[in-house]
Amino acid sequence: MARPHPLPESPPRAPWFRRRRFLIAASVVVLAMGALIYVGIKSTAMYHMEVGELLAEGSAVYGEKVRLGGEVVEGSIQPGPDDELRFVLTDGNQSLPVFYRGVVPDAFEPGADVVMDGALSPSGTFEASSLLAKCPSKYIRAP
Protein backbone atom coordinates (compact mmCIF):
# COMPACT_ATOMS: atom_id res chain seq x y z
CA MET A 1 0.00 0.00 0.00
CA ALA A 2 2.44 2.54 1.17
CA ARG A 3 5.24 1.52 -1.12
CA PRO A 4 4.03 -0.20 -4.24
CA HIS A 5 7.05 -1.31 -6.19
CA PRO A 6 6.83 -4.10 -8.70
CA LEU A 7 9.08 -7.10 -8.36
CA PRO A 8 11.30 -7.73 -11.32
CA GLU A 9 11.70 -11.33 -12.50
CA SER A 10 14.32 -13.28 -10.67
CA PRO A 11 17.61 -13.87 -12.40
CA PRO A 12 18.66 -17.48 -12.99
CA ARG A 13 19.90 -19.40 -9.96
CA ALA A 14 22.53 -17.52 -8.08
CA PRO A 15 25.86 -19.22 -7.58
CA TRP A 16 26.43 -20.37 -4.01
CA PHE A 17 28.90 -17.62 -3.18
CA ARG A 18 26.17 -15.05 -3.62
CA ARG A 19 24.60 -16.56 -0.56
CA ARG A 20 27.87 -16.81 1.28
CA ARG A 21 27.32 -13.78 3.47
CA PHE A 22 23.95 -15.10 4.53
CA LEU A 23 25.31 -18.55 5.27
CA ILE A 24 28.13 -17.11 7.35
CA ALA A 25 25.76 -14.88 9.31
CA ALA A 26 23.33 -17.75 9.84
CA SER A 27 26.15 -19.96 11.11
CA VAL A 28 27.23 -17.22 13.48
CA VAL A 29 23.67 -16.94 14.82
CA VAL A 30 23.35 -20.70 15.24
CA LEU A 31 26.76 -20.96 16.92
CA ALA A 32 25.92 -18.04 19.20
CA MET A 33 22.70 -19.73 20.30
CA GLY A 34 24.59 -22.99 20.80
CA ALA A 35 27.14 -21.17 22.93
CA LEU A 36 24.35 -19.55 24.97
CA ILE A 37 22.85 -22.96 25.66
CA TYR A 38 26.25 -24.48 26.48
CA VAL A 39 27.27 -21.69 28.85
CA GLY A 40 23.78 -21.62 30.36
CA ILE A 41 23.90 -25.32 31.17
CA LYS A 42 27.47 -25.07 32.48
CA SER A 43 26.69 -22.24 34.82
CA THR A 44 23.25 -23.21 36.09
CA ALA A 45 23.02 -27.01 36.03
CA MET A 46 22.55 -28.70 39.36
CA TYR A 47 22.52 -32.28 40.47
CA HIS A 48 19.05 -33.49 41.23
CA MET A 49 19.29 -36.01 44.05
CA GLU A 50 17.15 -38.01 46.36
CA VAL A 51 17.92 -38.13 50.08
CA GLY A 52 19.82 -41.44 49.88
CA GLU A 53 21.97 -40.27 46.97
CA LEU A 54 22.89 -37.08 48.80
CA LEU A 55 23.80 -38.92 51.99
CA ALA A 56 25.91 -41.38 50.03
CA GLU A 57 27.94 -38.47 48.67
CA GLY A 58 28.30 -37.15 52.21
CA SER A 59 31.16 -34.75 52.84
CA ALA A 60 32.05 -34.70 49.14
CA VAL A 61 29.14 -32.32 48.49
CA TYR A 62 29.32 -30.07 51.55
CA GLY A 63 28.42 -26.57 50.47
CA GLU A 64 27.79 -27.55 46.85
CA LYS A 65 24.49 -26.41 45.42
CA VAL A 66 22.18 -29.30 44.62
CA ARG A 67 18.50 -29.85 44.05
CA LEU A 68 17.02 -32.27 46.52
CA GLY A 69 13.70 -34.05 46.19
CA GLY A 70 11.83 -36.10 48.75
CA GLU A 71 8.85 -36.45 51.00
CA VAL A 72 8.11 -34.44 54.13
CA VAL A 73 7.98 -36.75 57.17
CA GLU A 74 4.64 -36.56 58.97
CA GLY A 75 4.87 -34.80 62.31
CA SER A 76 8.37 -33.43 61.70
CA ILE A 77 7.44 -29.87 60.77
CA GLN A 78 8.61 -27.29 63.31
CA PRO A 79 7.97 -23.66 62.45
CA GLY A 80 10.40 -21.26 64.11
CA PRO A 81 10.52 -17.48 64.52
CA ASP A 82 11.06 -15.24 61.48
CA ASP A 83 9.56 -17.69 58.96
CA GLU A 84 12.08 -20.32 59.89
CA LEU A 85 11.10 -23.86 59.18
CA ARG A 86 12.65 -27.18 60.16
CA PHE A 87 11.44 -30.55 59.01
CA VAL A 88 12.71 -33.99 58.07
CA LEU A 89 12.85 -35.17 54.49
CA THR A 90 12.78 -38.81 53.52
CA ASP A 91 13.06 -40.99 50.43
CA GLY A 92 11.35 -43.85 52.16
CA ASN A 93 14.54 -45.39 53.52
CA GLN A 94 16.84 -42.64 54.70
CA SER A 95 16.04 -39.22 56.05
CA LEU A 96 17.68 -35.88 56.53
CA PRO A 97 16.92 -32.76 58.60
CA VAL A 98 16.15 -29.64 56.59
CA PHE A 99 16.36 -25.98 57.48
CA TYR A 100 14.55 -23.36 55.40
CA ARG A 101 13.66 -19.74 55.78
CA GLY A 102 11.17 -18.00 53.51
CA VAL A 103 7.72 -18.28 51.99
CA VAL A 104 6.19 -21.72 52.33
CA PRO A 105 4.09 -22.73 49.33
CA ASP A 106 0.46 -23.66 49.87
CA ALA A 107 0.98 -27.23 48.79
CA PHE A 108 3.53 -27.82 51.55
CA GLU A 109 2.16 -30.26 54.11
CA PRO A 110 3.12 -33.44 55.93
CA GLY A 111 3.68 -36.14 53.35
CA ALA A 112 4.04 -33.68 50.43
CA ASP A 113 6.62 -34.20 47.72
CA VAL A 114 8.96 -31.25 47.77
CA VAL A 115 11.89 -30.06 45.69
CA MET A 116 14.50 -27.81 47.26
CA ASP A 117 17.60 -26.01 46.06
CA GLY A 118 20.29 -25.72 48.66
CA ALA A 119 23.38 -27.35 50.09
CA LEU A 120 24.30 -29.93 52.67
CA SER A 121 26.10 -28.32 55.60
CA PRO A 122 28.83 -30.12 57.58
CA SER A 123 26.41 -30.32 60.49
CA GLY A 124 24.38 -32.76 58.44
CA THR A 125 21.45 -30.38 57.87
CA PHE A 126 20.29 -29.52 54.39
CA GLU A 127 20.03 -25.75 54.17
CA ALA A 128 17.47 -24.93 51.53
CA SER A 129 17.33 -21.61 49.74
CA SER A 130 14.15 -22.42 47.86
CA LEU A 131 11.28 -24.74 48.52
CA LEU A 132 8.75 -26.00 45.99
CA ALA A 133 5.97 -28.37 46.81
CA LYS A 134 4.75 -30.39 43.90
CA CYS A 135 1.19 -29.69 42.98
CA PRO A 136 -0.50 -33.02 43.43
CA SER A 137 -1.64 -33.80 39.90
CA LYS A 138 -4.10 -36.23 41.31
CA TYR A 139 -5.73 -34.89 44.39
CA ILE A 140 -6.24 -37.56 47.03
CA ARG A 141 -7.85 -36.48 50.24
CA ALA A 142 -6.08 -37.46 53.42
CA PRO A 143 -8.05 -40.05 55.36
Partner: peptide
Protein backbone atom coordinates in the same frame (compact mmCIF):
# COMPACT_ATOMS: atom_id res chain seq x y z
CA UNK B 1 19.83 -36.35 37.03
CA UNK B 2 21.11 -32.87 36.30
CA UNK B 3 18.52 -30.14 36.14
CA UNK B 4 18.52 -26.56 34.97
CA UNK B 5 16.25 -23.98 36.50
CA UNK B 6 14.84 -20.58 35.62
CA UNK B 7 18.31 -18.93 35.53
CA UNK B 8 19.19 -21.13 32.56
Amino acid sequence: KITVGPPF
